[in-house]
């Protein structure tokens, strides 16, 4: 009995050491990475369209992104795209906010990233038969291309596809697709 307890205790200590080693390794990797690569903050306002349910909507989309990148090569970024959907007909204004964590490739004058996203929305929408204000959460995918012309100024194009659905009889199931483009500005740490 005592021997088994001792063995369990030793195993626990070994597990804790392994965990500490992994955390330490990750921190070391982060320190090395941050010393060699740069953070980039980018933002702008894009215009475009969104198709959700059966009704296409015009979208004005302020966006911001924090990315980690080399001069060229692998990049990783967290993007937030907040789309304002102006009212149409009896429908009022809507907000569709999408956050994504994206991986991609960067070069001196641009970058391309894609990855999973998660959206929160409150927007008027129309399905096959009904219209109304729908509130919900939706997972999806995000792709973005930024090309810079004058060092800090460039053009950004974003495309998203989200799965929308739930209890709402207005949008019980389906997809939302969005394509927006506009100017983008960036600031780099080095």
């Amino acid at each position: 009995m005592v021997r088994r307890g001792t063995r369990e205790g030793a195993g626990r200590v070994r597990g804790e050491r392994q965990l500490a080693g992994r955390v330490g390794g990750a921190v070391l990797l982060l320190i090395v990475a941050t010393s060699a690569e740069a953070y980039e903050l980018a933002g702008g306002v894009s215009l475009g369209g969104m198709l959700v349910g059966t009704l296409p909507r015009f979208a004005v989309s302020p966006h911001a992104a924090l990315s980690w990148r080399r001069e060229s090569g692998f990049s990783f970024g967290v993007d937030d795209l907040c789309s304002i959907l102006p009212g149409t007909g009896r429908l009022g204004v809507g907000v569709y906010n999408q956050m994504s964590a994206a991986f991609g490739y960067a070069w001196k004058d641009g970058d391309v990233r894609m990855g999973p996203s998660f959206s929160v929305y409150t927007m008027p929408a129309c399905g096959a038969t009904l219209c109304g204000r729908v509130v919900g959460l939706s997972p999806g995918g995000h792709a973005q291309v930024n090309v810079y012309f004058g060092g800090v100024v460039g053009v950004s194009v974003s495309a998203n596809v989200d799965w929308v659905g739930g209890r709402s009889l207005v949008l019980p199931g389906g997809w939302a697709a969005m394509l927006v483009a506009g100017p983008v500005f960036r600031w780099r740490s080095i």
Partner: peptide, 23 residues
């Protein structure tokens, strides 16, 4: 849970053909 879509209708809804009618 993060990869599940969920939503609900907030308030009233109306037929699609009445979209451009005055309430």
């Amino acid at each position: 849970l993060c990869f599940m879509a969920c939503n609900y209708t907030d308030g009233e809804c109306f037929p699609r053909e009445e979209l451009y009618e005055t309430s």
